[in-house]
């Protein structure tokens, strides 16, 4: 029987997606991107009104109106795309997976449509230390701090033959005591807050913490609920954020690699 299985798997075509194709890919995530040439004050206002969270807002700065898109709050509902008359589109690429919290925010000048590029982020000490200690090997402990399990479904998917996380020397381990990185999902429920603190304490230093999904980044759709205690960075220190609801396997992979390779 086992021979049939091996034979079948050997005869099947190769499905591994090359890394160049995966990095920054955001297809299927329904996260928004902006087409600056089509952006107008009216469209920006309509899109911000349609947003059910605080992901899209308008800000006044120096007498000019800025459109602020904070991916941390985005639950990928697609309403800005529906309301945005072409100025908002489903993102094909997303550069911010694994960024710091400020790196998740993008701004456009509404009048000119031009994106306002903010200053670069700096490399975290623990990321440098882990890279120098381990080269490319990394052990991850996944912690569900009250997610809907959508993020878990995608985190499991990055180990499948299409994405094959292990090709990067990255493994999921069974205990925080074996981990270099905690990959944390969910808004941190009141009932999970203590377990999250204890898991963090049980992870040896140097360690990295990555917040996953809209819930991990900001509480997402559950922000402000009486039953949540988060977001994650209100409970433990966070090194990088991977937005999305849920983030696709490509976004997760890009984000994990980004946190490891972040340079100033």
């Amino acid at each position: 029987m086992i021979f049939d299985t091996v034979k079948q798997s050997l005869s099947s075509r190769r499905v591994l997606i090359p890394v160049e194709q995966l990095l920054m890919d955001a297809q299927g995530s329904r996260m928004p991107d902006v087409q600056p040439s089509l952006l107008t004050a009216e469209i920006a206002r309509r899109a911000a009104d349609a947003c059910p969270t605080t992901a899209l807002t308008l800000e006044e700065a120096d007498g000019r109106t800025q459109l602020v898109l904070n991916y941390a709050d985005c639950v990928a509902c697609g309403r800005c795309i529906e309301a945005g008359a072409g100025a908002f589109v489903a993102a094909q690429k997303l550069a911010c997976c694994g960024a710091t919290k400020s790196g998740l925010v993008r701004r456009w000048d509404v009048a000119s449509g031009a994106e306002i590029v903010s200053s670069e982020r700096e490399m975290e000490n623990s990321a440098r230390e882990i890279r120098s200690l381990l080269g490319r090997a990394l052990n991850i402990r996944e912690v569900d701090a009250g997610s809907c399990n959508g993020c878990e479904a995608e985190i499991v998917a990055i180990t499948n033959p299409y994405y094959d996380l292990e090709r990067f020397g990255i493994h999921f381990v069974a205990s925080p005591k074996h981990a270099d990185m905690l990959l944390v999902t969910g808004p941190v429920t009141r009932n999970m807050a203590e377990a999250v603190r204890q898991t963090y304490a049980a992870t040896p230093s140097p360690k990295l913490v990555v917040a996953v999904g809209a819930c991990g980044c900001s509480g997402g759709i559950f922000a402000g609920s009486h039953a949540t205690a988060g977001p994650l960075d209100a409970i433990i220190p966070v090194d990088g954020y991977i937005p999305g609801c849920p983030p696709t396997p490509a976004m997760l992979l890009s984000g994990i690699l980004h946190v490891l390779q972040r340079r100033s």
Partner: peptide, 20 residues
């Protein structure tokens, strides 16, 4: 452990937002 007060969150939402 994953109790998020979800049923409470529906309260006062517009019908369309309930889907989210």
């Amino acid at each position: 452990y994953t109790h998020k007060g979800t049923e409470k969150l529906f309260e006062n939402m517009p019908i369309a937002d309930g889907c989210l």
